[in-house]
Computed example of a mutant assay.
Amino acid sequence: MSGDMSIREIKYYLEHDMFDEATYIQLTTDHRKGVQTLVRQHEKRKQQAEHLKQLYQDMMMFEQGLHEEGKLRVAGIDEAGRGPLAGPVVAASVILPSDYYLAGLYDSKQLSLAAREFYFEEITQHAEAFGIGIVDNRTIDRINIYEATKRAMNEAIENMGSAPDCLLVDAMHLPEAACEQHCLVKGDQRSVSIAAASVLAKVTRDRIMNEADKEFPGYHFHTNQGYGTKKHLEALQKQGASPYHRKSFSPVALLLG
């Protein structure tokens, strides 16, 4: 059958996984160079898909263990924005369905902007529950960034609208939490729930900083998200601090004397 098909037809069938096993084996012996190129590309895609699925399964280890203990509503929690000189700290809490699969879900810092936006929409559409917590720069200055991060995380849990059975928290402990919790260092690379939370927190904060940039364009918030880049520091020296800046953070505090 495959020998009677054009390379364009074969490409379509491979892209849509429409070949049965016997026909696919015939393809591997097709003498046409174009067909062999398509077969190699297909095999590479299959290997990548298998790698992503295995990675996801590995990152489900904590959730699966808790599910086996009867804790079915496991919330992953992460934050974005502890280090910047400007803007809020944002946290997210996410409960994913136990049978959910989203290929490539990982630490948001290692995803492209387009991938983060795509995953944000997927997660918010399919999560069993999610919540966002936002603590602004003025509160950060008043209570410090560590306490502000905890507050944002607790707000994210409250904003889910339903109580979790257990928490998986990225590198933080939340004494106020009313349920069992586990602190995971580099949790956004070890737990799919925390990785999902990292995406929601990062995208939400980036959108806030994009709006801040429209109000105060000179600081390049749309590209640096409030972090102390060279251009940002130069703008601080030239323009002074904006209402979004954290006055308790060293570069800003030094500027203000």
Rank of each mutant, 00 (worst) to 15 (best):
H245Q: 02
E43N: 15
Q64F: 00
R190Y: 00
I95F: 03
Q110K: 15
V94L: 06
V89N: 06
F19W: 12
A114F: 05
G65K: 10
T229K: 13
G76F: 01
G133Q: 00
L256W: 04
R207N: 11
R138A: 12
M18W: 06
I208K: 02
H16L: 07
D206V: 05
E21L: 14
D17Q: 14
M160W: 01
A49H: 06
L72H: 14
K109G: 05
I132D: 02
P175M: 01
H67Y: 15
V94K: 03
K46Q: 12
K230C: 06
A115Q: 13
A115Y: 05
Q47V: 09
Y244G: 04
E234W: 02
R45A: 11
P84F: 00
A148M: 11
Q54L: 12
L184V: 07
F19C: 04
E15L: 01
L52W: 14
L72N: 11
D30L: 10
G87I: 15
L167H: 03
V74A: 00
A91K: 15
Q36G: 06
I95C: 14
R73M: 15
S250I: 02
F120K: 03
E9T: 11
K44E: 15
L255T: 00
G70E: 01
Q237K: 15
M1E: 02
A195C: 02
Q125S: 14
Y24M: 13
H232Q: 11
G257T: 03
P175W: 00
C166V: 07
E234P: 00
L174G: 07
L111C: 06
G226D: 12
E15G: 07
K33C: 10
Y227Q: 10
A177W: 05
S162A: 15
H173Q: 08
G65L: 07
L102N: 05
F62G: 06
P175E: 01
F216P: 08
T124P: 08
F62W: 13
Q225F: 05
I25Y: 04
R32M: 02
Y119P: 01
V203P: 14
L254W: 06
Y24G: 08
M61S: 14
P217E: 13
P88Q: 11
K214L: 14
H222C: 08
C179Y: 02
D17H: 15
H220P: 03
F216L: 04
V185F: 05
G87W: 08
I10N: 12
Q239C: 07
G83E: 11
E147V: 04
E180W: 10
K238I: 07
S198C: 12
H173L: 07
R205Q: 10
H182P: 05
E15T: 02
G34L: 15
K44L: 09
R32H: 12
T29Y: 03
E9N: 14
L66Q: 11
A212N: 08
A80Y: 11
H126S: 07
G70I: 01
Y119N: 09
K150R: 11
T29V: 09
I77N: 09
T124I: 12
T139P: 01
D165R: 02
Q54I: 10
N137K: 13
R8E: 13
T204K: 10
L38I: 02
Y146W: 07
V39C: 13
S250G: 08
H67E: 03
N210G: 11
R45L: 07
Q110H: 10
F19H: 02
L236C: 00
M61K: 07
C166I: 09
R40Q: 07
G187F: 04
L102G: 03
A163M: 05
